[in-house]
Amino acid sequence: MNIFRLAGDMTHLLSILVLLLKIYATKSCSGISRKTQELYAIVFMARYLDLFTDFISVYNTFMKLIFIASSLAIVWCMRFHPVVRRSYDRELDTFRYFFLVGASFALALVWHDKFTLQEVFWAFSIYLEAVAILPQLVLLQRSGNVDNLTGQYVFFLGAYRAFYILNWIYRYMTEPRFTRWIAGISGVVQTALYADFFYYYFISWKNNSKLKLPA
């Protein structure tokens, strides 16, 4: 474990806590894409198939459980919670994400570390996570003004993978034969997708103005 990876995991956890706070405090999920939340639930369930077979550390197992449980809880809230579900922007959250799932799985069948069920699903989860934010970014562009907690949620979610890129660079330089091409290349693509959001987030922070993404 290095400082970059710890910072990445903590930033990821923070993004989830901010999202839970927004939903709990405002009893609303307006501005949140349910499709992105569902994609993340699939990402975590596909990535952590080794949850019960490979014990790495208490920290690793604990965080995997947190990620799976929180993503499922958020999807449940947005679908079934009597108050929260009413504020879901159903007519704005229309990204056809089936293609993202299909393309990611097809790529995982072609490019993986090893052709086993666990490794193909692991690669699938890596590719899917890289594009999982797209429905959320499209929703932000359509929904005009973005509330602070939603903006912070997306910001931390984008920042965590940037920390992971620093972690991979650090490990590549300090550990012999360390390579994570699948995660590394996907991580760069994932972080690049946030580029314009980061730009407008920085502008809104600098001008102390409301975050607004151009349509």
Binding site: D9, H12, I56, F67, D113, K114, Y164, R177, A183
Partner: peptide
């Protein structure tokens, strides 16, 4: 376990 297939990261 060799390096690649040991997913020690989240």
């Amino acid at each position: 376990l060799n390096n690649i297939l040991y997913h020690d990261e989240l």
